[in-house]
C-alpha cells in the first residue's frame, strides 16, 4: 500500500473528460482523475453512474458505435499521449490497453488460440515465441496447471471462472500497460470470484489496473485507490483506506454505508 501520493508515478490522467452518447446524452461530466502506475484503482457507484462508460473510454470502445463523442483528454504516460485525440488510432490504443469484460467472452477457438489471439493480431508467427507467451500468460492468469494438458480443447468447454481467467490470460499475453476490468466477477460464483480477486492483486506488479465493481467489499479488498462516481460525475477520489474509513463527501459516505444505491 502506498504511503505517500506524491511518490506515485502517473500512468494515465483524465482531464476535463466529458462523454456524450449518440443522441447527445451526457454520460460523463468533467472527470479529472489520476491513474497511478502499478496500482489498482477501483471505480464504484450506483448503476448508471457512468463508471463503465468511463472505463470504456480508456480503450476507445465507444468508437465502435456511431455518434458517440468525447471531449477533454486522457493523457497516457510515459509518452504523454492523449488517448482520445482523433488522430490517435483506436487500434493503437487497444494494443496498449487491455480489457476484461463483465461476462467471459472467449472466442470460438481453442484455449491456445484464444491466448495467442492478440499476438497473432500483432503479426507474431514464430511458433516457439507463441508457445512461450501463451504459457507465460496462462501462468500469469493462474490457469496453466488446469489447462496445460488440453490446450487444443475449445475454450467454451471451460467453466465460467476458468473462462474469465482465460480472458485475463488473453489480455495479458500482449503485455498491456493498462488493464481494464469491467465488473469481472459479476457472472461468477464466490470461489471463482476469490480466484480473480487474488489474481488482480498479483497482477498489479506487472500492469496498472482499473476495475469497475458493484461490490464494495471487492473494491476494499483489491484496490489501492477508489473513485466514487454518481450521475456521471467524479464525486470523490482517494486512497481506498481513506475513502472507506473517512470519506470526505457525504454522498460517498451514504453509498458506502448502504444508505443509497
Amino acid at each position: 500500500m502506498p504511503n505517500n501520493t506524491t511518490q506515485e508515478r502517473l500512468k494515465a490522467e483524465a482531464r476535463g473528460l466529458n462523454f456524450f452518447y449518440n443522441g447527445g446524452i451526457q454520460a460523463l461530466k468533467n472527470i479529472n482523475m489520476p491513474i497511478y502506475d502499478n496500482r489498482v484503482t477501483a471505480l464504484i457507484g450506483p448503476s448508471g453512474c457512468g463508471k463503465s462508460t468511463y472505463l470504456r473510454s480508456f480503450n476507445r470502445m465507444h468508437d465502435l458505435y456511431p455518434g458517440n463523442r468525447y471531449e477533454g483528454e486522457i493523457r497516457f504516460y510515459p509518452d504523454d499521449t492523449n488517448l482520445l485525440a482523433p488522430e490517435v488510432d483506436p487500434i493503437e490504443v487497444r494494443m496498449r490497453v487491455g480489457m476484461v469484460f463483465q461476462k467471459p467472452n472467449p472466442f470460438p477457438k481453442s484455449i491456445y488460440e484464444n491466448v495467442a489471439y492478440g499476438l497473432r493480431v500483432r503479426g507474431e508467427r514464430n511458433r516457439r515465441m507463441l508457445d512461450d507467451k501463451v504459457e507465460h500468460a496462462l501462468r500469469g492468469a493462474a490457469l496453466w496447471d488446469e489447462v496445460k494438458d488440453r490446450l487444443q480443447d475449445l475454450a467454451s468447454n471451460l467453466s465460467g471462472g476458468q473462462q474469465q481467467r482465460l480472458c485475463i490470460a488473453r489480455a495479458l499475453a500482449t503485455d498491456p500497460e493498462l488493464l481494464l476490468f469491467d465488473e469481472p466477477t459479476s457472472a461468477l460464483d464466490p470461489i471463482a470470484t476469490g480466484a480473480i480477486e487474488e489474481l488482480v492483486h498479483e497482477l498489479k506488479k506487472r500492469v496498472t489496473i482499473l476495475i469497475v465493481t458493484h461490490n464494495m467489499q471487492q473494491a476494499a479488498r483489491v484496490s489501492d485507490y477508489t473513485a466514487y462516481m454518481f450521475l456521471g460525475e467524479m464525486i470523490e477520489f482517494g486512497k481506498t483506506d481513506e475513502i472507506f474509513i473517512k470519506p470526505k463527501d457525504r454522498r460517498t459516505e451514504d453509498y458506502i454505508t448502504g444508505r443509497m444505491g
Binding site: 494494443m95 472466442f107 470460438p108 492478440g118 488473453r170 489480455a171
Partner: peptide, 24 residues
Amino acid sequence: SLREGAYAMGSSRLYTAIHVVIPA
C-alpha cells in the same frame, strides 16, 4: 460482446470478421 472482445485486443474490422465472427 464477442466482437468487443476482439476489438479490445486491437484487431481490425476485417480481422474480427474473419477470425471471430465467421467461426462463431
